[in-house]
Structures are given as C-alpha cells and as structure tokens.
Design a protein around this nucleic acid. Structure first.
Lengths: 218, 218
DNA sequence: TACAGGCTAACGGTTTTCCGTGATATAAAA
DNA sequence: TTTTATATCACGGAAAACCGTTAGCCTGTA
C-alpha cells in the first residue's frame, strides 16, 4: 500500500523530531521532508511534493500564513494541517479561507495528529477538540454570522504583509534586517512601518511592539 | 537495570507527546509523569519523584522559573533540564543559578534530549549547541570574567531610576519627553537607556518595551 | 472594464536612537 | 576610609526611525 507522504514545518527542530517520532508509530505514514521556516517550505515544494503538510503558524522569515498564500492554487499542492499555539477564531477562519484542511491547537494530543493526517488525506476537514469548541461557540454565539469585532481587531485591521513586518519589528529587528528577511526593499519595510504606526494609532516602534504583544503576533 | 525516570512539563500536549515518542526509542528511559503547567508540576512532586525533570520555561499559571524556585532545595529533587524557545544568556545564567542542570533551546535536535537526560543524570551539566555558543561568546566577549552587568539577576537588576525611565519608554515617550517629565537632561536619559539595553541584553527599544510588559512595569 | 486594496518602491529631509567614552557628586557598604 | 552603586551630564558620530508624498503593478470584485 502506498504510504501517506508528509512534510513538517516548524521552527523548533525538537518539535519536528517529536512529531516524527509520533508518526513513526503508524506504518501507513512516512515523513518525506521538513522545514524550519517558511522560505524552506516554499523552496521545497518547488521541486518536491507531499500528500500532507503539517504547518506551524509561528515561524521566522515567512510564517504559516505566508506559506499558505504561497502554495495556494499550485497544482499538486498538499493538504495542509495548520498547527498553532493560539486557537483564535479569526485565525482559524483565516487559514481555512486560505486553503487549509485542518487546524490543530498545540494543546492537542499527539495521536490526534495521526488522525488529522488520515482525515484530511481522505478529503475531509479535521479540527482538534478545543478548536471544534471554538467554532461551535462562535457559531452559536454569533448566529447572524456578523462579526462581533467590527473592524477585525486582529486579522482584519492589518494586512498579511503588515502583520509579517510587525512580527519582525517585535522581534527587535531593524528595517534593514526585516528587508533582508522578507527579500524586499528597505523602503518598502519603512512604508509598512509608517502605515502600521498610522493604522494602529501609536507613536513609534514601542507602540507597535506593545500592540504585537497584546495581539499575540509576537 | 534501573531505568531513568522522567517527568515532562510543557503547556503543549503535543510537545509532551512528541518528546515521549522520542524517548521511547531509548529503553533505559521511561516517562513517569507529565504536567501542562507549573502548578501541576509542583503538585506532582509533593507525592512523587523522578530522576530528571524536562521543564518548559513558558507555561501558564506558574512558569518554569517559578517551578525551579519551588523545587529548589527540596530533598530528593530531580535533575532539571530547562527547555526554552529563547536562549537568552541572562535566562541561561538565571536558571543555572536556580539549580537547573541543563538547558536545551527548542531548536535543538530530538536526540539531544536523550543525550541531555543521560548527561545530567550522571551528574554533569548539558547544553544544546546554540546554548553552548551563547555561553562561549558571552565568556569571550567579557574576557576578564568580570560581569559587565554586575549582579544582574534578571529580575531585580534595575535601579529605581532605570525602572522610571523604562516605564516611560514603554509609554511610547522619546528621550526628550522623558527628560522633560523627569526634569533631567536628555543625555542622562540616554545614558539610562544605554545601560538598560546592555543590562537586559536586548537589541533596542522594542526589546525594552517587551521586557517592560513581561515584568509588569508598564 | 473600472475601481479598490494591497504590495512594492523611491526620495529628501528631520528626529531619534544607539554607541563609546569619560566625568562628577553623593550616599551607602565593606 | 576606601570601595561600590547610583544618578547625573557631555560630546560626537553612525545608524535607524520617522514623515510626507508619489507611483507602478497586480488581483479580486463590482
């Protein structure tokens, strides 16, 4: 029988090794690739492919959202299971919209990752327990489907790119360093920075950093 | 042969399961307990014991540092290996001072955790590669062995005035504004700022702001 | 198709931060 | 009493942040 091929992306090597060890217990699954940041993932899928991608959201360079964007629409693109420390409802909605098939909060059990892989491989969606609860309570709590948070205090207010830049700023990186990391011009980074300061109505980088902390963008 | 007993503490269940899976590959090690936050760890050690404790620093309720403090000096206390996303030199020094025997950055490989367990169990200290580098570069950076940061104990290292300045910085104020607020010279504020950056081992104001948030100075 | 939103980029100029280095005064501790 | 810690201030130069403004390109949608 053909095995299910997996690629794992997480910035913590020890996490990757842990997941690999868990997956080794199931003979129908094999890990064929791994990445420590978003750039590596995108690169890998240029010349390789897998059935399923386990994708951490918080990664340096390019994060999970960037990767989703990068892989979206590509032919022979893998089913994607998003891994995240935070099971924010807006984040969940966002990644599903961007083509993810599953969402695992990191507080889920190890075996559930095997379950998740098999489920999304078969074409269905998979959510870990706490994520399911979030979705249900969001559903019952806001029956109209109208956003309670009008101006998307988290994922709507800022564009994806702005969030990228903000995260790196909150990582103590200078504009120059950010430009290098994202492979864009310093001018562009500064533009994003200016827009962020204006949008979030803060005075300087410190305000940006505080916002980032408050909204778990760090 | 007697096996080495391990307790694992991490707020991410999936991380615990991953580590467990890795450790299962070595027959001389067995996991006898696990915790999802600091309170559970402390509770567990009231009625149980293990040879080694794998301790994540970032946990809700009580974090790793609190646990170290709580277990310190207890008889039959385990050897402790600290797991952390950040390999900050001050944090490393701090946890060692508080009785930890090893320090693993989460970017280390999975097998190194087995190596770490055996090493600390035998009574020696263990550090993952990136941590070793940090320690060496810190050492060579200050050749005399004299601390540039005198008794910077990570928590109470700031003087009153420095705390004042830090608070205002974290309030998005510029040096000029701070000077006005405190009725001192801009030069003085800048000196404090420099000392803060050096003391707290951060790169820039952003680092200062994050520190301020983390320690409720804001 | 036209329009809006998002990403990219540039330029010139001002302000602020960052860094090293050195110095003085005072009060507490060894 | 000598040492140490704290708080104060100064200068000069490099780097980075901040500000306003403009503009081309692409994509999704009305």
């Amino acid at each position: 029988m053909k095995k299910i091929n997996i690629h794992i992306a997480d910035d913590h090597k020890i996490m990757i090794d842990g997941i690999k060890a868990v997956l080794k217990t199931d003979s129908s699954i094999q890990v064929v690739g791994e990445s420590l940041n978003g750039i590596q993932v995108i690169d890998w899928y240029k010349t390789n492919t897998s059935d399923v991608l386990i994708l951490d959201i918080n990664m340096p360079e390019l994060d999970g959202l960037d990767v989703l964007r990068g892989l979206k629409g590509k032919k022979r693109s893998p089913k994607i299971i998003v891994l995240s420390s935070y099971d924010d409802i807006k984040l969940i909605r966002e990644v599903l919209k961007m083509g993810a098939s599953g969402f695992l909060a990191k507080n889920c059990a190890g075996e559930s990752i095997i379950e998740a892989i098999k489920t999304v491989f078969s074409g269905e969606q998979y959510f870990s327990e706490s994520v399911k609860k979030r979705i249900y309570s969001d559903f019952t709590g806001q029956p109209s489907g109208v956003d309670v948070v009008p101006e998307g205090t988290f994922y709507n207010e800022l564009t994806n790119r702005e969030t990228d830049v903000l995260r790196l700023i909150a990582n103590e990186m200078s504009s120059k360093a950010i430009a290098l990391a994202l492979s864009i011009s310093v001018n562009t980074v500064e533009t994003h920075r200016k827009n962020l300061i204006k949008k979030l109505n803060v005075k300087n980088v410190v305000g940006l950093a505080l916002y980032a902390v408050k909204h778990n963008i760090v």
